[in-house]
Amino acid sequence: MYRSWQAQLRVLTALTLREMQSQNSSLDYGYAWALIDVCLSITALTLLKVFIKALSPPGMPPILFLVSGMLPWLTFQSTATAIESAIVRNKRLLAMPQITPLDLAIARALQIFCTYGVVFIGAAVGCTYFENAPPPRSIVGVTIVYIASWLLGLAYGLVTMPLSRVFPPAGKIIGLVWRFGLLMSGVFFVITFFPEWAWPYLDWNPMLHAEELTRTYWFSSYQTPVGSPLYLTECLAGLAILGLALERYVRSRIPI
């Protein structure tokens, strides 16, 4: 048992490092471009927010408020959308008995986690200093919710990847999720911005819970009225079980 876990860890480490090394490897400074890419995305969205002059809730520094919302969302979205492309792009590696489609998916997800994690820490420290804000109320809480957002992206990607292979138009439908998801997940707002009657229609979304919990653990002035760690865990477990089962089912039936 211990040996198989050790072998699994070895495979994941090798694949994650390969992803990092091969990403932008044709450019000077290689992997640094991946970090720059994320920073530019955040800057663009922050400028957009400043431009539309949306208000941050009282007691929350505006840029830090955005960073705390955008990075969990970007991590979730990038992980979920990268799973399928990671498998298709590296499908030739599946000719090696050590590597399974699941390894490719997890390795890509780990690479995204490392990239966005570094940017998250850098942006959080920088913005806290820049806006002269107090440190997060619970760093452990923020970290756990951030990891949960990443895992949610991995599980969601594992569910959608086999679905779009069995039923290709599903990819189009899934694309719609991202357009609404950015608006409905509390990236730019907290739920108290919406009228109370709308809350039950919004709080089915597990990413909204992740965003609400991040703000609650970060800012002492905010207490979420809907965010539930239990609901987030349930969604995560449900999606993960469904995704793993679907991946196993499709693996032996539909070639990549």
């Binding site: 072998a7 070895r10 495979v11 480490t13 090798a14 694949l15 390969r18 091969s22 490897s25 590597i99």
Partner: peptide, 18 residues
């Protein structure tokens, strides 16, 4: 990987196989 050095490619297999 064509854009990686031979040593990097060899190390990938080395890591994979321990």
């Amino acid at each position: 990987v064509m854009s990686s050095t031979l040593a990097t490619n060899i190390r990938f297999i080395g890591r994979l196989c321990g």
